[in-house]
Simulated scan of single mutants.
Amino acid sequence: MILPGAEPFFLPGGPKGVLLIHGFTGLPAELLLMGQYLHKLGFTVLGVRLAGHGTTVEDMSHMTWEDWMDSVRDGYAVLSGFCDSIDVIGHSMGGLFSLLLSTEEKVRKVVTLAAPIQIAEERGIEFLPPREVCNNQFIPKARRRLKGVPEAVNKTYRKMPLIGVHELVDVIEATKGCIDKVSVPVLIMHSHDDHTAAPASAGYIYDHVKSEDRRIVWLEKSGHLLPVAAEREKVFAEAAAFLQSSDA
C-alpha cells in the first residue's frame, strides 16, 4: 500500500513533457513544487515513484536498482503517450537515472540535482558491510523537518536498508560505465555544502558526458535537498530557463 501523499503525480499541460525522478529513500512529493512551477509554464509533468519507495522500508529492501530503473522507464513510456518531447530532471539518485535514461530513450534535455557520482566522505560509505551480510539490516536515517513543503516530504523513511545502499552504489557504477554515451544538453546543479553527494560529483559529470551543451550551476546553502531547500526558487528558475532555451 502506498503511503498517503507518496503517490506519483501527473500535471497535464502542453506538448513538452518533463519527467521528474526522486532519489534514494525519497518520494515524488519532494519534486512536487518543482513540478507545479514547470506546469505553470506550460509543461506536462509526471513525477514517478520508484519501486519500493513510499510504502515500507522492508518493501524497498527487496528492490534492485533495475527495479527502480524500470519505474523510470515506465514513467517515460506513460509520458511519451502525451508529449512530443521529453526532458528529464532527477534529484540525487534520480539524477543518475536521468543520465542513464538519456542513453536508452529519446530525451531532449537532462537536469541533474545533486547527483551522487561520489558519496560524501562523512557518510562513511567505506564502512558499508559486504552485500552478503546486509540482508534485513537497516540503519537510522536522520533528517530535519522542513517547512513550506508538501506534508509527505517530512514522512520519508527514517531508516534505510543496507542492501539498498549496495544497489545505490551499483547505480553509480552503471552511470559511470555509460556516462560517455550521454550527448544531450545537460544542466548540472549542486550545492557546495552538500554532505551527501560530494560536490566533486558535479565536476565528474561535466567532464565525462559528451554533451556539447553542458554547464554547472552552483548553490551555496541548499545542502543535498535542492528541490525543497532554501534556494529552491533559484533551482526551479534555472531549470526552467534551461528547458525553455533553444536547443544547442
Rank of each mutant, 00 (worst) to 15 (best):
G75L: 03
I188Q: 03
I117W: 01
S191F: 01
E121H: 08
D193Y: 09
R123M: 14
M63K: 15
A198Q: 05
D87E: 13
A200I: 12
V149H: 04
A142N: 14
C178E: 15
A77Y: 13
A202T: 01
D67T: 04
V57I: 14
P161M: 09
L113H: 01
P116D: 12
K159P: 00
M189C: 06
Q118T: 10
F138Q: 08
I89W: 00
N136E: 11
I119N: 09
K109N: 05
A202C: 05
N154G: 09
H91Y: 09
P140G: 12
L168Q: 02
V107Y: 00
E173G: 01
E105Q: 15
I86R: 06
V169F: 01
L100T: 01
D70Y: 13
V57D: 08
E66Y: 08
C178T: 15
V186F: 00
P199Q: 10
V149N: 10
D194V: 06
A197L: 07
D59K: 14
A114V: 03
G95Y: 00
V165Q: 04
R145M: 14
L146D: 09
D180P: 02
G81I: 11
L187W: 00
D59A: 13
M189H: 03
G148Q: 12
I139G: 08
V184Y: 00
A202K: 06
A174R: 15
S80I: 05
P140I: 12
E66R: 15
W68D: 03
M60A: 11
E58T: 11
V72A: 06
G203Y: 02
E104S: 15
K155M: 07
D67I: 02
G95N: 09
W68G: 02
E122A: 10
P185D: 06
L162Q: 06
E121V: 06
H62M: 12
G90K: 07
S85K: 12
V57S: 09
V88K: 11
E66K: 15
V182G: 03
M160T: 13
I163F: 02
V133Y: 01
V88E: 01
L99I: 05
V149W: 02
L187N: 01
W65R: 12
S98G: 11
A200S: 14
S102G: 03
V184Q: 02
V171A: 07
S183H: 11
G124L: 13
L101V: 03
D59W: 04
R145I: 14
I172E: 00
S92W: 00
A114W: 00
